Simulated assay, not measured.
Amino acid sequence: MSLHAFVDESRRNNTYLLAAAAVVPPRELTRLRKLLNGLRMPNQRELHFKKETPARRKQILSALVRTPVQVDLYLACCRKGEERARQACVARLTGNLLDLGAGRLVLDSREARDEHDLLTIRTSLGKYARGTGLVYEHLPSEGDPLLWIPDIVAWCYGAGDDWLRRAQPLIGNVVDTRKP
């Protein structure tokens, strides 16, 4: 069974967070997309947690914690630049996805900056890229509802306190790239 990973980012002060909903089995994709689409308000194109009211956040989280989704978080320091921090996280994520046997990696598009991710992924895969079977792409956040999951969990992790507590069932591994 090939896992799918959906990735978004967040930043809190000097900490860069890359969140990857990395434990999404193919049999769950359609059901999760329907659930997320059903949580949108009328005329809302996507769920973006930062823009939701606290009551809506609680409603959305309550629905998500009943799913089999696990989100791994990758942390990096932004003091030497946000892009550098992101690429440290993307490199570590790529290696971990290969270890899991993931088949697809979807990153929330940052438009012109997507090239940085592609270079990091290609470098991480090395000369055996085709043999890994990992397919990767960037999509706008409204392009796949599953990109909303890492947005939600990253926001909650960064907010801490009660939001982190509510999101805890969704959090898998926390990988701190600041530590050797």
Results as ranks from 00 to 15, higher is better:
R79Q: 14
L147H: 06
G133K: 05
L139S: 06
L134F: 08
P140F: 03
L100S: 10
I152E: 01
D151I: 00
T94W: 03
L93C: 03
R113W: 11
C156P: 07
Q87D: 09
R79K: 15
G133A: 10
G126R: 05
A129P: 04
R130A: 15
I149A: 04
A88T: 10
L98I: 14
G131M: 11
Y128E: 15
E142V: 12
E82Y: 13
T132W: 07
R79A: 14
L119T: 10
I149G: 03
A85P: 08
I121D: 02
S124A: 15
Q87P: 01
A88P: 01
L119F: 10
C156W: 01
T123E: 07
C78Q: 05
I152A: 15
H138D: 07
A154G: 04
L147K: 06
H116S: 13
D144M: 09
T94A: 09
E137A: 11
T123R: 07
N96D: 15
G131E: 13
R130G: 15
L118P: 03
L98Y: 07
G95W: 05
D99Y: 12
G133H: 07
T94G: 09
Y128K: 15
S124T: 11
I152Y: 03
E83A: 13
A112P: 11
T123A: 10
L97M: 10
Y136R: 00
R79S: 14
L100A: 12
S141P: 14
A76I: 01
T123M: 07
L107G: 06
H138C: 11
R79G: 08
L125C: 09
L146F: 01
D162H: 11
E111H: 14
D161A: 13
D161W: 09
L147Y: 04
V106M: 01
E82H: 12
G101D: 06
E137L: 09
P145G: 02
I149S: 03
V90M: 00
V90S: 00
A154N: 02
D144H: 11
R104C: 14
D117T: 06
E111F: 13
R79P: 10
P140G: 04
P150S: 08
Y136S: 06
G158P: 01
L125P: 10
V135R: 15
Q87V: 00
L97R: 02
L134K: 08
P150Q: 04
D117F: 05
Q87H: 05
D114W: 02
G126K: 01
L97E: 07
G103D: 08
Q87L: 08
V106G: 00
G81H: 03
I149F: 05
K127Q: 12
D117E: 11
A88Y: 02
K80H: 12
R86F: 02
A159G: 01
C77H: 09
L97I: 08
G103C: 06
